[in-house]
């Protein structure tokens, strides 16, 4: 039992930085995983990735002006993310161009601007920090920010739940009974942005999208209803966070990638073994029901 305790419990009891990291990652799980579920169901998984790149110039601007400080970098990232989301969303709703194309155009421009800005002043270590985050160095400000984002996200998801589901399941129907379709789309894009911004302190701009998409993608293989899928994604995300932090602690790996790798492992397992995964749907079934 001591071995068990040493491996799984002790790191979180003994070290304050591990407790902070755990708290941050768990809050992110509760917040980002359900957002990821809807992102995936709207066929926007790669949009999440694009958005993660898009917030870079804002974070870089904050970094250039104030150094490695959470508030200016967060605000910068938020502004850049909202600009790109609104711009791409507006182009796709006002012209014939689909959102994937407009989003790609906007985020590529944004990413290039961001990298140029970081390289203007920072060293490579700074760039690494912005790109890959440091979950083990979350300070009070960062934890407050993540908590705030989690509260906003969960409230908004619960409040707009029905419209969000209708807008994914049958957008034309929603348009025929309500004018909420477009507002809900933009509110949702806003949630994506604030979750990415909350995540990039811990996981960096490139990996914050991982905790959003991987648990959601894994949950799809198990669930039949979207509510179940959200709960499952949160669970997978939380387990991945714990597993990733432990992996990072024991094997001296960078924490962000370790968390995302754990989520990746959950995804791979689900692809193979879940009820809607590869194995179960391919198994030859000889028994069948009468109706």
């Amino acid at each position: 039992m001591t071995g068990f305790h040493d491996i799984l419990i002790a790191p979180f009891v003994e070290f304050a930085f591990m407790q902070r990291a755990l708290l941050g990652a768990l809050m992110l799980s509760v917040s980002a995983a359900p957002v990821g579920v809807f992102l995936m169901l709207r066929r926007m998984s790669l949009t999440g990735d694009a958005m993660a790149h898009a917030i870079l110039p804002g974070a870089a601007a904050g970094f250039l002006l104030y150094g490695l400080e959470i508030v200016p970098m967060t605000l910068g990232g938020l502004i850049a993310g909202v600009l790109v989301a609104l711009g791409a969303g507006a182009v796709s709703r006002l012209t014939i161009q689909k959102e994937d194309a407009s989003m790609a155009a906007f985020y590529l421009i944004s990413l290039a601007v961001g990298v140029v800005m970081v390289s203007l002043r920072g060293s490579n270590i700074d760039l690494m920090h912005v790109l890959f985050g440091t979950v083990l160095a979350l300070d009070n400000d960062a934890l407050t920010l993540i908590g705030l984002v989690t509260a906003i996200t969960i409230s908004a998801l619960l409040f707009f739940r029905r419209a969000l589901i209708a807008e994914c399941l049958d957008p034309l129907f929603l348009r025929s009974v309500s004018k909420l379709g477009s507002p809900v789309h933009f509110i949702f894009l806003g949630l994506v942005v604030i979750n990415l911004v909350a995540g990039f302190q811990a996981l960096g701009t490139l990996l914050s999208v991982g905790l959003m998409i991987l648990p959601a993608a894994a949950a799809r293989f198990w669930a039949q209803r979207v509510e179940t899928m959200c709960l499952l994604a949160i669970g997978i995300s939380a387990l991945s966070s714990i597993a990733g932090l432990l992996l990072s602690y024991h094997a001296a790996l960078p924490s962000g990638p370790a968390i995302i790798l754990s989520a990746g492992f959950a995804y791979a397992t689900s692809v193979i073994a879940a009820p809607r995964g590869v194995l179960m749907t391919r198994l030859p079934k000889t028994a069948h029901r009468t109706a």
């Binding site: 169901l41 589901i165 399941l169 049958d170 957008p171 034309l172 929603l174 209803r225």
Partner: peptide, 19 residues
Amino acid sequence: ELDRSFPAQVRDLVSLGLW
């Protein structure tokens, strides 16, 4: 524009009519 791959059951789809 119904997304048939959406994780919903028949009752969920019909319940949209309650809007």
